[in-house]
Amino acid sequence: MASRRRMLLKVIILGDSGVGKTSLMNQYVNRKFSNQYKATIGADFLTKEVQFEDRQFTLQIWDTAGQERFQSLGVAFYRGADCCVLVYDVNVMKSFDNLNNWREEFLIQASPSDPENFPFVVLGNKIDVDSGNSRVVSEKKAKAWCASKGNIPYFETSAKEGFNVEAAFQCIAKNALKNEPEEDIYLPDTIDVVGRQQQRSSGCEC
């Protein structure tokens, strides 16, 4: 039996206001989309049971407020995170430009023991909007940025249509698990995540 700490994986979702953090979390956990979500204040979370082979893990996903001043609350919110998900809206350039700020702020406030290798995952959300015609950040540009930051896995998603959300979170869960520092637990070389054979974007090795 693994220790309690081991069973819980904490994931933080960051990004500008309105990029779809709450929607992504709800789409993954409840497989539902609503255009009636309230603006998140402070933080909110959902949990989902995830299975790796014969072992159960609880993925605790933290959704945060996007307004810049809420970054100051980060210390309490980011503590103990196992993976950080950076979200931007492919139709809003500024939300992409701010990814760097979100990443750096996370590293400062969470101060992980090995910041160079701390797992991030980037999601370009809202690819469904206007059938992609209003898109301003190209996949190439996003991937280039991810590559420059130590090959951050990158996914293009639509929380509204549920596109690529499952695959993205499987990658997130796997990376969160890899980040767990405890060594006393046997880990198989390959981790089979339930239903992982779905479509996935390039850039992630999971």
Binding site: I41, A43, F45, L73, A76, F77
Partner: peptide, 19 residues
Amino acid sequence: LEFDVSLVATEWFLCLFSK
């Protein structure tokens, strides 16, 4: 549980419980 109360209470104080 390493659960900081501010994780839930921040919203209470900023929205004055309205949410």
